[in-house]
């Protein structure tokens, strides 16, 4: 079966790759583009470990073909911060012990990132509802919620300042 040329903007960089139509975006990201932050947890779109952002939407990249993302702007955990300057969410997850094994973390933070863009000042309930497409087996979510609320509050303060 012929491969299609897929052009994407991933974390600010334009990339081109070849993929069969059936290749899932998560596999193209992880195996061809070596972006291994997003993970594969359930493969049935329940766990959210594979969450990336596509054109301003949080998407489970295990349930979209790479070819469908043709021409899209994609942000993964790798695009949110860098070792010299972490994103506030990354800082707050560390500070509030919002992760343990780390497997859900990239998807969780990527989802939280979009959530806070759409709702910069969420209540605890809104955070819990907003990340309900991301499963975590380790933390019981309590510290994740705390971290996201702390990030929101810091982002809001920065904005005011």
């Amino acid at each position: 079966m012929t491969k299609a040329t897929i052009s994407l903007n991933v974390n600010g960089q334009t990339v081109e790759t070849q993929a069969e139509p059936r290749e899932l975006l998560i596999h193209v990201l992880r195996e061809q583009l070596e972006i291994t932050g997003p993970h594969i947890g359930c493969e049935t779109s329940h766990c959210g470990a594979c969450t990336v952002e596509i054109d301003g939407r949080s998407v489970k990249s295990c349930t979209i073909f790479a070819v469908q993302a043709q021409g899209s702007e994609i942000t993964t955990i790798e695009g949110l911060g860098n070792p010299d300057k972490l994103h506030v969410l990354q800082e707050k997850f560390k500070e509030h012990h919002g992760l343990q094994c780390g497997f859900c973390t990239p998807g969780m933070i990527t989802r939280a990132h979009r959530l806070l863009i759409e709702n910069p000042n969420p209540t605890e309930e809104e955070v819990r509802f907003g990340i309900s497409g991301n499963l975590c087996r380790c933390t019981g979510y309590q510290n994740i919620v705390k971290a996201i609320l702390a990030a929101a509050s810091e982002l809001n303060e920065t904005e005011v300042a």
């Binding site: 992880r30 291994t36 997003p38 993970h39 594969i40 790798e78 860098n82 972490l86 992760l99 780390g102």
Partner: peptide, 21 residues
């Protein structure tokens, strides 16, 4: 004490078995 593991995990730089290539 804050966890030393978290720097790599929060940046998507963990190294799980399926990441091996």
């Amino acid at each position: 004490r804050k966890r030393v593991e978290d720097a790599r995990f929060t940046q998507g730089k963990g190294n799980y078995v399926d990441d091996l290539k």
